[in-house]
């Protein structure tokens, strides 16, 4: 294998991490570095957009209002007009964080920065990040269900019939699993495809795939946020749907 190494123009690294040791805990440093950048960008843009709020918006405020309306629409469509407002921050942060993470992975030339081990990439191509987000979503919809319907929330497990009890319980495990793996798989696959294409044909050929990657990244953020909102809405409303609207 060592013989091939000199031929490699761009090196592919999968599953290598920059490990940080913090008080006996192992951390993936590269994930935190990029996520801090993403968080910093989000906070900075929010701060700039809300620094001088006008009734007639312009520039950044206008753009961020558009983003907020987009997020509100996601939450409103899935959760319903009456209940969506408290969930806007959660769903919105999911969308913004995933979207900016994905696009940062696709647009920022991280490879120019060399790390001792591993490489910088979108935070969402690390399984820890996506599982963290998916588990938070699970917690969120459990909280939503319990706070809205109390112990009556458990009734949804035997609806419409008690025969479906195992499937309904299974659903609570498949939901975070599918959420996290969908995001993780899509982003990682996209970055791998681009990397392999760059490895094979360094010029121009990877460009369409990169554009497709941008599209996929945006869609994945939208899907994650929409599904999270849908789960929350379902938990609030219940399977029976006794109070629609």
């Amino acid at each position: 294998m060592l013989m091939i190494h000199p031929l490699v123009l761009a090196k592919l690294e999968v599953g290598e991490h920059l490990y940080w040791q913090v008080g006996g805990l192992k951390l993936h440093g590269q994930v935190f570095l990029t996520s801090w950048l993403v968080i910093g960008a989000l906070l900075l843009v929010s701060f700039l957009a809300t620094r001088n709020i006008q009734r007639v918006p312009s520039g950044l405020q206008n753009f961020m209002e558009y983003a907020l309306e987009f997020i509100r629409d996601i939450a409103k469509n899935q959760i319903g007009e009456k209940e969506y407002r408290p969930w806007v921050p959660f769903v919105g942060t999911l969308f913004l964080f995933i979207f900016v993470s994905n696009w940062s992975g696709a647009l920022i030339p991280w490879k120019l920065i060399h790390l001792p081990s591993g490489e910088l990439a979108a935070p969402t191509n690390d399984i820890n990040t996506t599982v963290a987000l998916a588990l938070l979503t699970s917690l969120a919809y459990f909280y939503a269900g319990f706070s809205k319907r109390g112990l009556g929330y458990f009734a949804k497990y035997i609806e419409p019939t008690p025969i479906l009890l195992p499937i309904n319980i299974l659903e609570d495990f498949t939901k975070p699993l599918s959420l996290s793996f969908r995001l993780f798989g899509n982003i990682l696959a996209d970055e791998l495809v681009v990397a392999v294409l760059v490895l094979l044909v360094p010029l121009f050929v990877p460009l369409p795939v990169m554009v497709l990657g941008l599209f996929t990244s945006a869609i994945q953020a939208l899907i994650f946020a929409t599904l999270a909102a849908a789960y929350i809405g379902e938990a609030i409303e219940g399977h029976g749907g006794e109070e629609h609207g």
């Binding site: 951390l27 935190f32 921050p89 820890n128 938070l136």
Partner: peptide, 23 residues
């Protein structure tokens, strides 16, 4: 690829903090 460690809970905490800050 599937290397779970303390990144997971810390990322969750970080995300919640981000949600609060953005709120």
């Amino acid at each position: 690829l599937f290397d779970f460690d303390a990144t997971l809970p810390l990322m969750a905490v970080q995300f919640v903090l981000l949600a609060v800050a953005l709120n």
